[in-house]
């Protein structure tokens, strides 16, 4: 197999998730897709190795637990080339959607070039919609242009994270609906739970309302926003 074959061997697709599957953690989503692709007979490329071979599936961003997704990217490597004629992408997506739970569906798929940066490294931003009573007022009170720092506890370590610099754009749709575009991926990533933490502390959003907020990741951007 030469380089041109390899370049045609990768598929980039976007998927949406709603309903009960929004409560899955990222690794559960990886397993869900891996099994669905087995059921749909996608000829995935498997890593070499006798002990734990893995299918080549890369997610653009981890699918955070409790977040709906409208258009998240996933890239997979295939063990077959489209030139071989044995893999019809359009038909394969129909098969995959039939093998996925109804609450997870692939919305579009295309062949993509391989080589260069990995999908995860290409992700630079994401757009979220937050639906909760009073969320926009809380946002206006919190993010006035000055730095907003919150504490992030991870693995028993507490670090301070500045949020303002990670927000690229905010659009107040209604008082109950806020849309923000922010840094995502390996650089300048904004954790949406930290944003809610700031809205509770500085914006007067009640913790109960924040906990019940509907969080939707509308888009993930690669390269440039």
């Amino acid at each position: 197999m030469d380089v041109s074959d390899l370049q045609q061997n990768r598929v980039l697709f976007h998927y949406a998730r709603t309903g009960s599957t929004i409560w899955l953690a990222h690794l559960d989503m990886v397993r869900l897709f891996s099994r669905a692709m087995n059921r749909a007979a996608w000829p995935l490329y498997w890593s070499e190795g006798a002990y734990n071979p893995r299918p080549d599936i890369v997610f653009g961003l981890p699918a955070g637990c409790g977040i709906e997704l409208e258009r998240d990217p996933v890239e997979v490597g295939l063990a077959t080339s489209p030139d071989e004629g044995s893999f019809d992408l359009e038909e394969a997506v129909l098969r995959l959607n039939a093998a996925l739970p109804e609450s997870v569906q692939v919305t579009e798929a295309n062949y993509t070039e391989s080589g260069g940066k990995s999908l995860m490294a290409r992700v630079c931003a994401a757009r979220y919609r937050i639906e909760a009573p009073g969320v926009s007022s809380a946002y206006r009170k919190t993010f006035t242009g000055a730095p907003v720092t919150v504490e992030h506890v991870r693995k028993k370590r507490t670090t301070s994270v500045e949020l303002m610099s990670k927000i690229m754009d905010a659009d107040v749709v209604y008082d109950d609906v806020l849309r923000i575009t922010c840094g995502a991926g390996s650089v300048n990533h904004l954790r949406i739970n930290l944003l809610l933490k700031a809205l509770i502390r500085d914006g007067g959003l009640s913790p109960e309302v924040a906990a019940g907020a509907r969080l939707i990741r509308e888009a993930v951007f690669m390269g440039t926003v």
């Binding site: 309903g19 009960s20 599957t21 637990c65 739970p101």
Partner: peptide, 17 residues
């Protein structure tokens, strides 16, 4: 949502398998 966000492994309770 508010309840599920306060528990560990909420997918234990939400089904959809």
């Amino acid at each position: 949502r508010a309840i599920l966000r306060q528990v560990e492994k909420p997918a234990r309770y939400t089904g959809g398998e």
